[in-house]
Design a protein around this nucleic acid. Structure first.
Lengths: 145, 145
DNA sequence: CTAATGTCTCTAGTAACTATAGCTGCAAGA
DNA sequence: TCTTGCAGCTATAGTTACTAGAGACATTAG
């Protein structure tokens, strides 16, 4: 049986985060020691590793919740899991495309900076006037860490 | 003089967001009408457009705060503004690189899915075992809007 | 004049944690 | 055995950049 600290060290998740996952119901409440400390078995370790890996791939916790409940029902077709992964892939791709447009614009700004005074700084000037931009970056999408 | 609604419509910022910017000190408290409603002049409009554009380029509000205070001092050298823009560019580029690694991994997962049952779903399997991954995506960076 | 829309303040909620405070548990050294 | 010090416990609040809601007042169109 692992204490929360060992579990955290083994999975690379921080201790408060483990407790947070329990609080929001992603991890089941574990056994407790006589002194009321959490004790985890290998199943919990596996589940936490799953969560950690999915988070690292950018899946939001809600998607992970769905994936976990799917993995508890191995007899179902995997189309639902597939759909979640595809949605995540699409979100990542959209985000990349958007960031590339921002990158272009920022690069233009930085390159044109003549390193004089603020009064004729391209950075400040371009920010003040969207008309000088090449691309349409005027939609700020949601984060995804 | 513009009411908050007109200002919002002209700049593409939502009304509560304008009030929020005032609350955190990005916009100065404007004049008020006899009935206590906010009234904005062209300077406020310009400042808000600046904020809006910088946000669209992904600058965090703290960076925008710095940029605004720089733009109030046109005689200073523009190196500080340049540095902020460069930092934002670097953050965007780092984020793109990280998302590309995720994209690869997600693509592998989705492509390998045989559309059978959950029991042998690659999506679920790969998430449960990081050893099957090609890349090192095990650092989740911070958001950026 | 009335009805509809706009605006006001204030509070709370979002995602996914992180940090803090103040307490108790537990293992090892002197 | 004492004690020191880390680990763990609960609960609350803070983070970013807003968004949503409640309930009241202002303004404007018909």
């Amino acid at each position: 049986m692992l204490t929360i600290g060992k579990l955290a060290a083994e999975t690379g998740v921080k201790v408060p985060t483990v407790r947070y996952y329990e609080q929001i119901g992603l991890l089941p409440p574990p056994e407790r020691s006589s002194g009321n400390q959490r004790l985890y078995g290998p199943l919990a370790r596996q589940r936490l590793a799953f969560i950690r890996h999915a988070r690292a791939l950018g899946f939001p916790l809600e998607a992970i919740r769905d994936l976990l409940s799917l993995s508890d029902r191995p007899e179902l077709p995997c189309s639902a899991a597939d759909a979640i992964a595809k949605a995540q892939l699409a979100a990542v791709q959209a985000r990349i495309a958007q960031l590339k447009a921002l990158e272009q614009e920022l690069q233009r700004m930085v390159i044109q900076c003549a390193h004089g005074t603020i009064a004729d700084c391209r950075v400040i000037e371009v920010l003040g006037d969207h008309g000088q931009c090449a691309h349409d970056h005027h939609t700020v999408p949601e984060a995804m860490e």
